[in-house]
């Protein structure tokens, strides 16, 4: 669309800007202020300079939490994206079935995150949970409080259960926007199922997929409530992700300075990744407009 250059548009932005600035900029400034001081209360504080940053960057616990975080985010993306595309291709397109499947698939997205944790906590318990009990009956010593492998596996299954619907729905809406004529043309050309997917459906999906991957990366990167409820970060610290380390430090231990420094590092990582994604999306749209 040809947009008009008009700086009066800022007037329309202002109310939003005031609100978001109140919720975003003031707290961010405060975090920066905390990060260079040792704060006991508003009157008792000492300037520490970069000390907290040095400490946080060299903290092995946080470094391993960061690595775990990346490993987790990549794993869930690798599972959820193909699975989500698959589900979207399978979903019926018309009739009451379409609505019913749509609602059922959306269901996990609408459950509060800690309830998701509770659901899986109940589901995987060895004594009262169907999955935990079932696996034990099958002869597998399943125990998420003892075995790090089980805990990891369960958290990944939980995340797949929770978030694949987002990818599936994004792709489903992408698929719905393909005109029927494309499929007819493909039928006339006797294109194989794979060719239809590769040359008709996938190109339409790239746009929504980038959004989906972006959202999924971000949400998996700040995952907190579900593993906290399910495993409490254990066994040991095998499922302690960044958000949880941060929250423990900030709320549990009241270490304002170090947790603020950690927040900023965390934020910078997110900022870089989202900038890369955003630039990619924007360039894709530009190419599309230029090519059309």
């Amino acid at each position: 669309m040809n947009k008009v250059y008009d700086n009066k548009a800022w007037l329309l932005i202002l109310p939003m800007l005031a609100l978001v600035a109140f919720s975003a900029i003031i707290p961010l400034m405060t975090v920066v202020n905390y990060s260079v001081q040792d704060v006991f209360d508003a009157n008792t504080r000492f300037f520490t300079g970069t000390e907290w940053f040095v400490q946080m960057l060299n903290d092995p616990a946080l470094q391993s939490a960061l690595l775990r975080q990346f490993a987790f985010s990549l794993t869930v993306l690798c599972i959820e994206v193909p699975l989500g595309i698959g589900i979207a291709l399978l979903m019926p397109k018309k009739g009451w079935q379409a609505s019913a499947v749509l609602i059922l698939v959306t269901l996990p997205l609408l459950i509060p995150w800690n309830v998701v944790g509770s659901i899986w906590q109940i589901f995987t318990r060895g004594d009262i949970g169907l999955m935990g009990w079932g696996l034990r009956e099958l002869g597998y010593e399943y125990n998420i409080t003892r075995s790090a492998v089980d805990a990891w596996g369960t958290i990944i299954i939980m995340d797949v259960w929770h978030w694949t619907p987002l990818i599936a729905l994004l792709c489903y809406s992408g698929l719905r926007s393909i005109p029927e004529a494309y499929y007819q043309a493909a039928r006339i050309d006797r294109a194989s199922r794979w060719a239809v997917f590769r040359f008709i459906q996938l190109p339409k999906l790239t746009n929504v997929l980038v959004i989906g991957v972006l959202l999924r990366f971000m949400h998996s990167f700040m995952i907190y409530a579900e593993p906290f409820v399910l495993t409490g970060g254990g066994p040991g610290s095998s499922t302690t992700f960044l958000s949880q380390s941060l929250t423990t430090m900030a709320i549990g231990q009241q270490d304002l300075g170090p947790s603020a420094a950690f927040s900023l590092i965390y934020f910078l990582i997110i900022l870089l990744v989202s900038w890369v994604f955003y630039t990619a999306i924007m360039n894709m749209q530009k190419d599309k407009e230029g090519g059309a």
Binding site: M29, A42, F47
Partner: peptide
């Protein structure tokens, strides 16, 4: 503003 615990370097930074 007191609770925001401003310091000179951060003030300069944001300015």
């Amino acid at each position: 503003m007191e609770w925001m615990v401003w310091t000179l370097p951060t003030t300069v930074f944001f300015s």
